[in-house]
């Protein structure tokens, strides 16, 4: 299959996935008992009030009609209006998403900066004590619930040792977030832990695979020093596929952000979603899920395409 056809096919698949997501979230959220009216108007609301609310919000029309109308509005960038905050969902997300992106990107970058050297070190010292120690630590980091890790970080580095604030930077703008870098430290570390765990394993694997390639033996035979081969060839050949894996990791990063934002009271999209779930704010829940799934689908697409371009042996997407 030519590259162009491959791209077209993957983009169409991605669109199909997003369409399925919209159907699924729409059905899930409309299956909630009591319905949005009961959630907004409270248990004291009369039947008439509920009927009027449902009529105003078009919630009394058949579900397929509501879905098609919803899809049409989505195409115009309209995600509806929050029941509780009375603001357009798209605007709410526009305000919060950049902060979540800053948090997740920082976590990913910090995580990768640690994971890549660690993974290479493990590969070079394969089956030596240091390899076992880092492997064990990465299993531990992977197996720790994020909220427990965050809590321990707060306990040690904020409560016992008053080094960092226990609360993330507050404020509506990114400038206010960056004005308090110390407040970002613990949330970023909590988010980065699983990146270190997972990506040091990927890097270890990729480095080992490259070390066993013929070109390494050839370079050794040609008199290159081991360190030079590692830096010049193995590092470069391992780095791109490992970094591309980040595309598959987008949902995990967002899941982490959900917990970290709630734990550190960081006003991003995760906290918005959390608050919306407490108040059955359907348009906000739908909107957030949609944005996250689009991000995931784009991440997966990017990773698939990058892997295909750097390694012609990859003919299909990951299976």
């Amino acid at each position: 299959m030519s590259t162009f056809l491959y791209l077209i096919r993957r983009v169409l698949q991605a669109l199909a996935v997003i369409l399925i997501v919209t159907v699924a979230t729409f059905c899930l959220l409309h299956a909630l008992p009591g319905g949005p009216a009961r959630g907004i108007l409270g248990p004291q609301a009369t039947v008439q009030q509920i009927a009027q609310f449902n009529h105003e919000q078009s919630l009394d029309r058949p579900l397929p009609v509501q879905y098609v109308a919803y899809l049409g509005r989505l195409l115009h960038g309209d995600l509806g209006t929050s029941y509780t905050l009375n603001e357009p969902v798209s605007q709410l997300i526009q305000e919060r998403l950049p902060k979540t992106l800053v948090l997740t990107l920082l976590s990913a970058v910090v995580g990768l900066l640690l994971a890549i050297p660690l993974g290479m070190w493990q590969a070079v010292r394969r089956n030596k004590p240091v390899d076992y120690v880092i492997t064990t630590l990465s299993f531990v980091a992977y197996s720790t619930p994020v909220y427990f890790l965050g809590l321990m970080l707060v306990l040690v580095f904020s409560h016992v040792l008053p080094w960092f604030p226990a609360q993330a930077p507050q404020g509506d703008t990114l400038a206010q977030v960056f004005a308090d870098p110390a407040g970002l430290v613990l949330p970023v570390v909590a988010g980065a832990a699983s990146v270190v765990a997972v990506f040091s394993r990927y890097m270890r694997g990729a480095t080992l695979e490259n070390l066993s390639e013929d070109y390494v033996r050839t370079a050794r035979a040609g008199g290159s020093r081991r360190g030079a081969i590692l830096r010049r060839h193995v590092f470069r050949n391992s780095l791109t596929p490992v970094v591309a894996m980040l595309g598959y990791y987008v949902p995990v990063l967002f899941g982490g952000a959900l917990v970290v934002e709630q734990l550190f009271n960081y006003p991003g999209m995760g906290l918005l979603f959390w608050t919306a779930a407490q108040s059955s704010d359907y348009p906000v829940l739908l909107g957030c899920v949609l944005v996250i799934s689009v991000a995931t689908v784009v991440g997966t697409l990017a990773a698939d395409v990058v892997q295909r371009f750097i390694d012609p042996r990859v003919k299909e997407g990951h299976a």
Binding site: Q13, V17, I18, I20, V21, A24, T25, P251, V252, F254, G255, L258, V259, F273, C288, V289, I292, S293, T296, V297, T300
Partner: peptide, 10 residues
């Protein structure tokens, strides 16, 4: 794919 696109925690 669609299921994977929505993180389980959400």
């Amino acid at each position: 794919d669609a299921g994977i696109a929505i993180p389980a925690l959400f």
